[in-house]
């Protein structure tokens, strides 16, 4: 197949934008953008949730900073809602009020191991379902976004 100069340009453009070498979590609010990579997220205080999930048999251990800590690092100033975006184009919107009380973490590791995209990494919003059985239903399951790539505040 013959490559046109135009397509070569597109390829270059895409390559520069995506940069998949290190998984990143982008947080945006209007024009303001902050990008965390995994190492940065792991420098935050880590919380571990041991819980059963609808996705696996038995319990798994998830580790990562709390969602609250991550958002506070970005700086919260009167935002009301947020949207989670995932690599698989899944997205879900929630109000901050609703979300902050759930004890959610941005998990970077499952059972101590980093998570590949195939294992629904690199980041996974995890709720303490076993500790708080009230959360163990569809209403809250939809916030447990895997392959998380971005959080947009508004």
């Amino acid at each position: 197949m013959k490559r046109s100069p135009l397509s070569a340009f597109f390829a270059l453009l895409l390559l520069s934008v995506s940069a998949f070498a290190a998984p990143e979590l982008t947080i945006r609010h209007g024009a303001q953008t902050l990008v965390f990579d995994r190492e940065e997220l792991e420098t935050f205080p880590q919380t571990t949730i041991v819980t059963a999930t609808p996705y696996f048999d038995g319990t798994r251990e998830f580790t990562g900073p709390t969602l609250r800590r991550v958002l506070e690092a970005f700086g919260l100033a009167g935002q009301r809602g947020l949207t989670f975006r995932a690599l698989n184009d899944y997205q879900v919107t929630a109000t901050l009020d609703e979300l902050m009380g759930l004890g959610a973490i941005v998990a970077t590791r499952m059972d101590g191991n980093l998570m590949s995209v195939r294992n629904r990494g690199p980041f996974w919003i995890m709720l303490p379902l076993s500790d708080r059985p009230a959360l163990n239903n569809e209403t809250f399951h939809r916030y447990m976004v895997w392959q998380l790539s971005a959080i947009e505040l508004d």
Binding site: S7, N88, R118, N119
Partner: peptide, 25 residues
């Protein structure tokens, strides 16, 4: 010839995780 192999790889992995999910969850 205009695609990005990494992007193809990502989408491959995403679908992989879907299969994995469908078969295991």
């Amino acid at each position: 010839g205009v695609g990005d192999p990494d992007e193809v790889m990502l989408r491959y992995d995403v679908l992989w995780s879907r299969y994995d999910y469908l078969l295991k969850s």
